[in-house]
Amino acid sequence: MRRRDHIVWLAGGLIAVAATRLFQDAYSISVVNLVFIACLFAASFRFVMLIGEMSFASAAFVGVGAYGAGVATTLLHWPFALAMLVGPVVATLVSIGFGLIVLRIKGPYFMLIGFAFAEAVQIAAAQIQVIGGPSGMVGIFAPRILDAWMQSFVAAVVVTALYLLYRLEWSDFGRLLGAIQNNDNVARTVGVNVLGAKVTCFAVASFMAGLAGSLTAFVNNVIAPSDFGFMLANFALVYVKVGGERSLFGAVAGATVMVLLSSYSIVLGASNELFYGAAIVVTILLMPQGLAGLVEKIRLRLMAPKAVRREA
């Protein structure tokens, strides 16, 4: 990353956080919160895609983050900052253990192991009565001072997390992940610790998934195991693909559009599922490269005549 990039991030981030002040009614605030949290989860999901894998286990790590916040706040009465972080830290630790074993496996097998893991964790959480069993936990509130600032707090946390993910992606480590995606055997032959890099990538993504979970808990105030099934990860993949997976901003745009669409489609009552499914199908068929691909196409079309002129 060049210096100008940091400045752009700072300015863009400040604008995004400041923009949340435009929303003062409770409903818009709830949607803004959902949008930012979805952006973070989509970016986390995409981060694992940098090594060419789809991690449906991420849904479970969002759950771990949420339950961390729930347990710390309602059972242990820990301070807010600690409650925000305990879930992500636990998610990271679990993901390192899980990753060390499972990241030797690739492609569809890794993907379906993720499904099994998310399902198993969901069922297990429902068996533990201390954390509310299948009913989940209630009363997970942020401190009262944050009441009027929750949407800005969520935005600030998410923008910071996105910035860190972006920095990592464009660092040497990020390029290493790209090399692993292209061909991990080549990376291995030049002496790269492929498994170590994969696990690190997975751990970072899981921390971010856990953070999305903590935010979810404080925003919804109520969590239940059924919120964190594999469908959650399915939607993250949808966000990434709708936006365009080649850039972090694609994931952000995809999450924004799809969450707004799903919030809107609530008013369709019984037809909401049909509508949302149709939206996914139409988008993927019309824009296989996502919104980012569409933007790119338009840009090329606009620039093409200029380039021709310059050559002439």
Binding site: N234, V238, A270, N272, L274, Y276, G277, A278
Partner: peptide, 9 residues
């Protein structure tokens, strides 16, 4: 996935 949701609806 989209087709599944669409056809469920």
């Amino acid at each position: 996935l989209g087709l599944a949701m669409l056809s469920d609806g």
